[in-house]
Amino acid sequence: MTDIDTTEPVRPETIKAVPVRHPGRWVSAVIVLVLAAMLVHMLFTNPNLDWSTFGKYFFDGGILKGLVATLELTVIAMAIGIVGGVILALMRLSANPMLSSAAWLYIWFFRGTPVLVQLIFWFNIKALFGDISLGIPFGPMFITWDVNSLVTTFVAAILGLGLNEAAYMSEIVRAGILSVDEGQTEAAQALGMRRLKVMRRIVLPQAMRVIIPPTGNETISMLKTTSLASTVAFTELLKAGEDIFNANYRTIPLLIVVSVWYIIVTSVLSVGQYYLERYFGRGSSRELPPTPLQRLRRNLTTFHVTPPRVPERGTS
């Protein structure tokens, strides 16, 4: 090792100059603080907010049942959306022209009409098909069901939200698949892997890194979109709140109850999304970013100051 002088050189004199003033920051700070104070004041003094009602109904049985229904609807609709989205994406990317145009048509239709219209459509499906039968197309039928017994409001909500979601998810999945370098497919094929296996083992796991963040957004968005199901008489969180305030006319407090629940679940989902992204990001960067917990632990254990480096005088 050569002789390198590692002692701190004398620090040269720092430039003394008048710093740039930022009057805009002061003005905006004043405006924001005043607005915030007004908001807090309103929260505490406005009698219409009626916090006692809020407290009374926050853990109300009907509200909690509605919350569970909302969660169920979110999970099932997203599951349909993700599975359907993967299938549609594979169809669109397939070499088979029938499959790819069928998928294109599906996406075109389901993205082209509002999800609320689709929900109402499924709710009124009885008006289109009286019965559903299983049999030979254009031939004899073996089993017949009444549509209303099959498509309950829950099923209508799931179909409406899930099938719509599949169209959006398919575009996300497709973008993810296309983001994976073609060399990956070639390398896998050169090893003798077949197309489906290449997709499952090589391409999709890498596409996940691109697919997960927007899917998290879709899930959070779905959580709130389920409130549309209240219009087709399905009792989810919003409808549960509506049922209560239709009886006691305490509209605002109950809307706040519902909103706070939505925010809580959204926050939990965001945390889950962070960990999912971290898991699928492995191998893409040299080191995984620390989880908030790890970061906290590290900060707690390393508050001692690192000792100054002893200058190493080369002798070796």
Binding site: G183, A187, Q189, A190, G192, M193, I202, Q206, S284
Partner: peptide, 29 residues
């Protein structure tokens, strides 16, 4: 695919599978 199993190929840009370790890359096929 069966024909390709007996022919090894090495690419200019390596094309290792980035989501697998070195060992997993080798064991995959």
């Amino acid at each position: 695919a069966a024909q390709r199993r007996d022919i090894g190929m090495v690419f200019q840009r390596f094309n290792l599978f980035p989501h697998m370790t070195a060992l997993e890359n080798i064991m995959e096929a």
